[in-house]
Design a protein around this nucleic acid. Sequence first.
RNA 1: GACCGCGUAGCUCAGCCGGUAGAGCAACUGACUUUUAAUCAGUAGGUCGUGGGUUCGAAUCCCACCGCGGUCACCA
Length: 528
Amino acid sequence: MTIFLTYHINAIMTQKTSAALADPSAPASSVQQDDNILRAAKLKKLQALEETGTNAFPHKFERTHKQGELQDKYAGLENGAETEDHVHIAGRVMAMRNNGMFIDLTDPSGKIQVFCHKESMEPSEFQKLDYIDLGDIIGVEGTIRRTPRGELSVRTKSITMLTKSLLPLPEKYHGMTNIEQRYRQRYLDLIMNEQSRTVLRTRTMIVRAIREFMNNMGAMEVETPMLHPIMGGAAAKPFVTHHNAFDTDFFLRVAPELYLKRLIVGGFADAVYEIGRNFRNEGVSIKHNPEYTAIEAYHSYMDYYDLMNLIEDLVRFIVLAVHGSTKIQYGDKVIDFGPPWARKSMVGLVQEETGVDFMTIETAAAARAKAAELGFKVDPQFNWGQVVEYIFAETAEHKLIQPTHVIDHPYDISPLSKLHRDNPRLTERFESYVNGWEICNAFTELNDPRDQLARFQEQVAQREGGNEESMMLDDDFVTALEYGLPPTGGWGVGIDRLVMLLTDSSNIRDVIAFPTLKPNFGNKKSAE
RNA sequence: GACCGCGUAGCUCAGCCGGUAGAGCAACUGACUUUUAAUCAGUAGGUCGUGGGUUCGAAUCCCACCGCGGUCACCA
């Protein structure tokens, strides 16, 4: 596999750098030569080790304890105390002091010091230190002690090479700080940076908590297609891909919505949810990755009032699971998920900010004129709802630091929401904002097939008018609604943003193990 | 996409009003067996992102390109 990948990348490089390689004085294998210089010392040790008859990559090592377990178990052991407690531990060599007498051995649970004293070890074991480098994975057998200076240690009896590392680790004090390299070589970032490990582990905890909450309420987790023949479920620019056997283009999904509602139509379950990736062919920023993870859920016989309560309960459950408190620190702000969240209508917030009640403005043209009067440069194509949304985003959105449900969105920006029971210019929709970010989008689902068809047709008209983010008409979805979608509430939460909030991360790439990066085949650092 | 900034040894960084490339850590050789970024002495390691240009001479000045970061606009 590795050989194949190397070959493949070299082939790409050859295409891209054929001019340079055509020069006979330019060594085609310069990358490999660099590697050989870097690896020479370690390869030499590896070969010397293998000449002693040792397997540097054995198949199995029986551990008795993890490092973290030992730190917990012996937390009360006094300085200078020796025990006869015999352990087998394993991990990566992260530091060697005093010529290998002290080794910091880490595993995912923590770190313990390995103490190699020649009077405790057979000479044949002690000599193995000569073959060990920073970065190697080793197993150690010995007894537990705490040094006079207070460091919990294993007094080594024997050492086993488990995996010989052939490349040097980054510098131990500063670690790896090059941001690009941290994302491109996440494994190195994880080895070196505790903070990176913590953030990504917290992400896993958050996803686990979401599943627990949903499963506890009886919702069924499902999977729906990521290859969509029809772009729908959200307004967004999609990726297009091609299926060879069908000779057909597919869109990578921008949202699972239309499939999940089909499952509710089918009576598969009262509530379904999907946690998965959506793909949007749009800009990349500290808050946007081309593929991002969201949960979407649909609950029959709930409306958007029920969903507001549900979202508050869910987020509190997650925050408590991760932090043990409903209050979190993000940058210099303290955010409290505990109290009931504020509920403010979008039109009302616009009125608070501008003094203008847009409900008194009937037409799109009048709305645009009023916006212009207020100093906003709105698109001449904007309809009434788009004007309201634009002014909301410009004036109010960034101020919504504490959890707030923004409710009752205009009809014409909400093509899948049910009309508001009290006002047909609005819909029963809400978006939950925290720290100025939208973290949830939810609504009482539109289930009148005649209305849905009309909304699709509006989308198609917008699409033909040049809006490539508008949805396509999904006939089969309308057909499904014609069989009958019960009254249903649906919602989606962007998990990456939520993880950013709960890990105090300022860049979405910090909460995604392998964020989307521009390929850089010509860079020798990436060509390894 | 626009603007600003960055790219020098495996890693962290100096050097940049042009004069043949420097430190610390890592590595290698040696000393040292109770260290915590261990210490001490020595050695080796770099087409200074890529390609052009100006110049007697470019890491340094200019142009283009690649990648990254930040800000802004649209999207979660």
